[in-house]
Design a protein around this nucleic acid. Structure first.
Lengths: 198, 198
DNA sequence: GCTTCTATTGACATTTTTGTAGATAACTCT
DNA sequence: AGAGTTATCTACAAAAATGTCAATAGAAGC
């Protein structure tokens, strides 16, 4: 019998955690928070569930770490893309970036999960990001902080909603899934332009 | 010892189901889908968990019934309020109603839950509602179906986002919780007006 | 009052999920 | 090569969650 037991792999602690978190994220995005079971995460990561516990202590530890990692990703993705200086391009860009962030990689699902679980405390990262945008790009254009904040609140909420239910909503009414996103993007762009030209 | 065992209460099947579903909804709204445990639902309803099973067959049965009931509520609430004939009032109203529906009674949480669980199939009710609005109030104002659909998609998505994370988002950046809702309402109103006057 | 029906329950049984412990093996350093 | 460190595993144990069943007790009809 040449059934050769796959040689056991030993990763660095960081790599092991990373691998496990990726599996967990996959599960969260694909099947929702309910699917975040110890054994399933382990199976997805290709390790035993004891290994998961070794690295995260408990299933809660996994969830906490996952939330933190995803938030970090999300914020980083948004901030990174806050580059262009041409106002028009930027206007276009801010929507794109926001929508991308919340749609791809399950950003909206992350947020929904956090909200549903009531774990909205450790979002200091998000707060910092918002303040960075307000005092950075938007201040440059002479928008007062209050109005800037409002615009951001609306834009983020919209991105959230679109990212979470946009696709299925469109399909529900018999349109291609990207319809919502495109419509929202146009709507947001128009609204922002109007608000800025006042 | 005058500890008198509380007299066992016997409800009609309908009342019993209703009572249990209310407890379940409370749990869902307060602590998220993860908290929808058989025993907790039973405790909230003041009955034994065997009773819950008797009425719903399984925990899945509870979840399914709850989802259906909440969707029914949500759709009814939105459609009911689609009354006023004055365009302006209606414009104001559609936003109000939508936002209310998604914010109060955990409408947004319901939607998020459904989406996260991938149970977006049994939303035929929603589809019907959308079509009713498109062919009713919006057609009266001479908006073509395609554009009407787009507007609805955006409005619903926004309401969803605001209902789900609006409050905590505002608090996160140090504003009163209603800030997001108000800003979004204004934004939506302006956007709709612009779209209609084109 | 008596019977019938069934909502309700406590006690038990099963399955699922999480956590523990000791042994093993992969990698690093000397 | 040899030793030490620890990531990983298997096997077991505990806890949590779901589900079953037979007995009880409200309510309605006779």
């Amino acid at each position: 019998m040449s059934i050769e037991a796959a040689r056991r792999m030993r990763r660095s602690p960081a790599a092991a955690r990373e691998n496990i978190l990726q599996a967990a994220e996959q599960l969260l995005v694909d099947h929702g928070p309910q699917a975040l079971k110890l054994v399933d995460v382990a199976k997805g990561a290709g390790v035993s569930h004891a290994t998961v516990l070794h690295h995260f202590g408990s299933i809660d530890g996994v969830q906490t770490a996952l939330a933190e990692a995803m938030i970090r990703q999300l914020v980083a993705r948004v901030l990174e893309a806050e580059r262009p200086d041409d106002p028009h391009e930027q206007l276009e860009g801010v929507g794109q970036v926001l929508f991308d962030a919340f749609e791809s990689a399950g950003g909206a699902r992350l947020a929904a999960w956090l909200e549903l679980t009531g774990e909205t405390r450790r979002l200091t990262l998000v707060r910092a990001a918002v303040e960075e945008v307000i005092s950075g790009p938007m201040a440059q254009k002479g928008i007062n902080p209050e109005r800037a904040t409002n615009l951001i609140l609306v834009a983020v909420s919209l991105a959230m909603g679109v990212g979470l239910i946009g696709r299925s909503l469109a399909e529900l009414v018999g349109r291609p899934p990207e319809t919502t996103r495109e419509a929202a993007l146009a709507f947001l762009k128009a609204g922002l332009a109007a608000a800025l030209n006042e």
